[in-house]
């Protein structure tokens, strides 16, 4: 059997395992789905609320605001779901106690992450699609002028950079068995703060605005909003795509290298064995 066939089968092992976990924990998936839909709808209703509070003033376009919030919640749901699935590459195995069996298998970390990432992207796309469907039904969204292809391209390009961020964050459960998984929430909360999910980055104070420049989510949100709200052409979206592609090209290998160092550290200090 060639090395490539083995690595492909190993990649599929992670995809199949995660699919089985999702299937077996279907009731939790339903709870999470209902929460996500309710979260997205309640934020998006703020747009309609603004219009009403403005007393029908022509300065407040409720429809525009609803779509602005819908895009924010959907993009954020998609990116954060990818992030959590990837950071869970160690967390879930610590929880189940299987980490030693996975890490002693003859599988490269690249293959390991590829399997986890492939599943994360597919799962996140499907999950976000269901939340989008709920929004379309409730808000009667008109997307006739939207550049759907461009928006999707920005979203997929942004996935790569978030994969890199996720790989870096996944070392936290490796290094800190008891609290590592919770630490990843801090990172995602900071990204939520600075990336302009529910407001334009321009309203942020200067230091946070600087931080927004380094968040891949800033570009993904900016690009998808331009595509879906303004109908900007795909070529014009390039200014949002290239920064996230460059971030992905840098963050993924750097993330893998950092993960490798963390794994060696855990093997030196005996942290693999301890369960959180």
């Amino acid at each position: 059997m060639s090395l490539a066939v083995h690595q492909l089968r190993a990649t599929y092992a992670f995809v199949e395992r995660n699919a089985n976990i999702v299937r077996r924990y279907w009731s939790w998936e339903m709870v999470w789905m209902i929460y996500s839909i309710a979260d997205s709808l309640s934020v998006s209703f703020i747009g309609m609320g603004f219009e009403q509070m403005g007393g029908g003033s022509s300065e407040v376009d409720g429809r525009y605001l609803v779509l602005y919030f819908v895009i924010g919640t959907l993009v954020w749901r998609y990116l954060s779901t990818i992030f959590y699935w990837i950071t869970d590459v160690i967390g879930i195995e610590r929880w189940e106690g299987t980490i030693e069996y996975t890490l002693m298998a003859p599988v490269s970390r690249l293959t390991h992450m590829a399997g986890q990432t492939f599943f994360a992207v597919i799962y996140s796309l499907l999950f976000t699609a269901v939340v989008l469907l709920a929004n379309v039904v409730v808000f009667d969204i008109d997307m006739q002028q939207a550049n759907l292809l461009g928006g999707t391209l920005v979203l997929l390009a942004g996935s790569f950079s978030f994969i890199g961020v996720g790989i870096m964050a996944s070392i936290l459960p490796l290094l800190f068995p008891e609290r590592g998984s919770q630490m990843t929430h801090v990172l995602i909360a900071l990204l939520l703060l600075v990336s302009g999910v529910y407001y334009p980055v321009s309203v942020l104070p200067s230091p946070l605005k600087e931080m927004a420049t380094f968040s891949p989510a800033t570009y993904v949100l900016g690009g998808t909003r331009q595509a879906l709200l303004e109908g900007v052409s795909t070529i014009e979206l390039w200014i949002y795509i290239w920064p996230v592609l460059i971030m992905g090209v840098i963050l993924i290998p750097v993330g893998l290298w950092i993960f490798r160092q963390a794994e060696l550290y855990a093997k030196r200090t005996g942290k693999l064995h301890r369960n959180g």
Partner: peptide
């Protein structure tokens, strides 16, 4: 093991890692 998964699902995962 992954406790919610069956022996078959757990062993499928384990064996696929070995190609």
């Amino acid at each position: 093991f992954f406790k919610k998964l069956s022996p078959m699902e757990n062993l499928l995962y384990g064996a696929r890692l070995y190609g």
